[in-house]
């Protein structure tokens, strides 16, 4: 028995994880800096909500989950813009003061009424201008399609999304290259298609990789969630029979 005790002790000197059943509500932040397709503008959104115990009733409406009285600032090298509470859990740059500039590092600073601080930084990527296909160059239906875009500076990864304009079939993949071959089944009929290629910063890319039943990949201090950036380009094209 002494030998057994010694062996067991050697095995338990590091205390493995201990149960934590007294879950307390956390702050959940979704901050997104978005530059949409060419010349159509910028969106800057921060949502602040709370999480719930798994056994609790989860309010259906963001209004009821919202934290409305936080101080929210987004800063860059030359800018410091206060985001005002707009509705429900949403805060925004109401007066459109914040200019999104590729290559610029943006910092999100949130202070709650109890003094709790949340902070994160993201790097704004450049736009990945789509080179192929374009509206003027019909592609062949039933064939794989190689989508090409101009390399976007500061992009951590790309997301390519395509929608069949008639049936609404949608598909997206991630890429680390400047081109990606899309499968033939996406163009299984002559049709109009909408293609979007987005540059993602690292925060948003990691956020997309997080899963429901796993520990989330967090690049934000003081909260669950993300503060990320997306810049995308859009193209509409036609797939035709040969």
């Amino acid at each position: 028995m002494p030998l057994l005790s010694v062996l067991l002790l050697t095995c338990t000197r590091d205390n493995p994880t201990t149960p934590n059943l007294d879950y307390e509500s956390e702050i959940v932040v979704f901050g997104l800096l978005l530059m949409t397709e060419r010349d159509s503008g910028q969106q800057k959104t921060v949502r602040i909500e709370r999480s719930y115990k798994v056994t609790d009733y989860l309010p259906d409406y963001p209004e009821d989950r919202a934290i409305k009285d936080a101080l929210v600032y987004v800063e860059s090298r030359n800018q410091r813009v206060k985001f005002e509470h707009l509705f429900a859990s949403t805060y925004s740059d109401v007066e459109e003061k914040l200019q999104l500039v590729p290559g610029e590092l943006y910092t999100l600073n949130i202070t709650l009424t109890d003094g709790h601080k949340i902070t994160s930084q993201c790097l704004m990527p450049d736009r990945p201008t789509i080179l192929f296909p374009t509206a003027n160059t019909p592609v062949k239906a039933y064939q794989p399609l190689t989508v090409q875009w101009e390399h976007a500076r500061f992009a951590h990864r790309y997301q390519i999304a395509i929608e069949d304009n008639v049936d609404g079939f949608q598909f997206s993949i991630l890429s680390d290259s400047d081109q990606e071959e899309l499968y033939a089944f996406l163009f299984a009929r002559p049709n109009h298609y909408i293609l979007k290629v987005a540059s993602l910063d690292q925060n948003y890319y990691d956020y997309l990789r997080s899963r429901s039943n796993r520990e989330p990949i967090l690049r934000i201090d003081g909260a669950l969630g993300v503060f990320g950036a997306i810049v995308y380009d859009r193209e509409r094209f036609v797939a035709v029979t040969q």
């Binding site: 956390e26 979704f30 963001p62 999304a161 796993r214 520990e215």
Partner: peptide, 24 residues
């Protein structure tokens, strides 16, 4: 232990999708 609403940008509806995630 917990649950929260997770948002994601929808490129075609130009809005945020939401889904309930587990907090393990």
């Amino acid at each position: 232990l917990g649950k929260y609403v997770r948002y994601r940008w929808d490129y075609f509806d130009n809005q945020l999708d939401d889904v309930i995630y587990n907090r393990i």
